[in-house]
């Protein structure tokens, strides 16, 4: 088994995908670091101060003004309302939710990457894991070895899990190291708030508690890993089902992008919450952002994702062990 997994890792490394992914992440992080830096500068210039309390207060006032204009969509109003109450809570407790520093950047990067960027990176590795063997014909060589088919697929899956862990490590390290050049490497001990629950348009602060930022970031990375595994497993299933890597990528891409779009407009279609792609933003529950559909919670989203992931895994194994290869 060890040898099989090693063999699969060798295949993944030899395709150089992991390095391409690292390069993509490095470029994007550099880009976002610069954008963030510009934004901080602009805000400082506009308000004439670098005092975060003044800046946060101004954001609150801006949001209140936006809420008072009549031409504002219901979803956006709710989002603003929740964020406003949260910012007010942060302010009242004298906690800066966006103190500059590499850990803060890292946290925001993960929160923004979890539903699209990260699954895309995972997809790059997972999409051709099985399908390329089928289309290239090497699957026959693989299956003639005196090992059960299930074991072969399992070794591939374990290699995928390892690759996902590696990708997440790349994202974490690069976002920390690169953004730190600009923002500094401090801020692991900063306190942050979590445990907000959302009831309709109101923010419930009953369960709120403090977390040091290092723990907060680690929690978010753990959730991002979970999401990446589910996305990877779904891609893996498609890769078993289809011979064409392009088709696998196309379907996953369509699903992920539709998720990003749907999240903005499904609040009235309640049963959409059972789709995996609107449940990807697990970190939103940690930070206390309004979910796309009322009543969605962290437990709910994790369960939905787990069911989709397990089903996909089961289908992949059944099809792979039963299928005729010729």
């Amino acid at each position: 088994m060890n040898n099989l997994v090693y063999n699969e890792m060798l295949k993944i490394v030899r395709k150089k995908r992991l390095f391409v992914i690292a390069a993509i992440v490095a470029v994007l992080v550099a880009l976002f670091t610069y954008a963030q830096f510009k934004q901080v500068k602009e805000l400082q210039e506009r308000l004439g101060t670098s005092d975060w309390r003044t800046q946060l207060q101004q954001q609150i006032i801006d949001a209140q003004n936006r809420l008072n204009s009549s031409s504002i969509s219901e979803e956006w109003r709710k989002y603003l309302q929740i964020r406003l109450q949260q910012q007010q809570y942060y302010l009242e407790h004298d906690i800066n939710p966006s103190a500059p520093g590499a850990p803060t950047f890292m946290r925001m990067f993960i929160e923004n990457a979890i539903d699209l960027f990260l699954p895309l990176l995972v997809m790059v590795v997972a999409a051709d894991l099985v399908s390329s063997e089928a289309s290239g014909g090497t699957i026959k060589l693989l299956l003639t070895r005196p090992v059960k088919r299930g074991t072969i697929l399992l070794s591939k899956y374990i290699a995928l899990l390892l690759a996902i862990s590696f990708i997440l490590l790349t994202v974490a390290l690069l976002s920390y190291l690169i953004s730190g050049i600009v923002f500094g490497y401090h801020g692991w001990r900063l306190p942050l708030l979590t445990g907000f629950t959302i009831n309709g348009e109101d923010l419930n602060t009953e369960g709120v508690h403090l977390l040091p930022q290092w723990k907060y970031v680690l929690i978010e990375l753990g959730l991002a890993w979970y999401v990446a595994i589910v996305a990877g497993t779904l891609t893996f299933m498609l890769s078993v089902l289809m011979r064409s890597t392009a088709a696998v990528m196309g379907i996953m891409l369509a699903a992920l992008i539709s998720g990003a779009i749907l999240s903005n407009m499904v609040s009235s279609w309640e049963s959409a919450k059972y789709l995996f792609m609107v449940n990807l933003r697990l970190t939103d529950y940690i930070s206390g952002t309004a979910p796309p559909i009322d009543g969605m919670t962290l437990g709910f989203s994790m369960t939905v994702l787990a069911v989709w992931g397990l089903l996909a895994l089961a289908i992949a194994f059944i099809v792979f062990t039963k299928r005729d290869v010729y």
Partner: peptide
Amino acid sequence: GILWLGGLAMA
């Protein structure tokens, strides 16, 4: 992977 699993458990 073990580290991320720890993060998930912590979450």
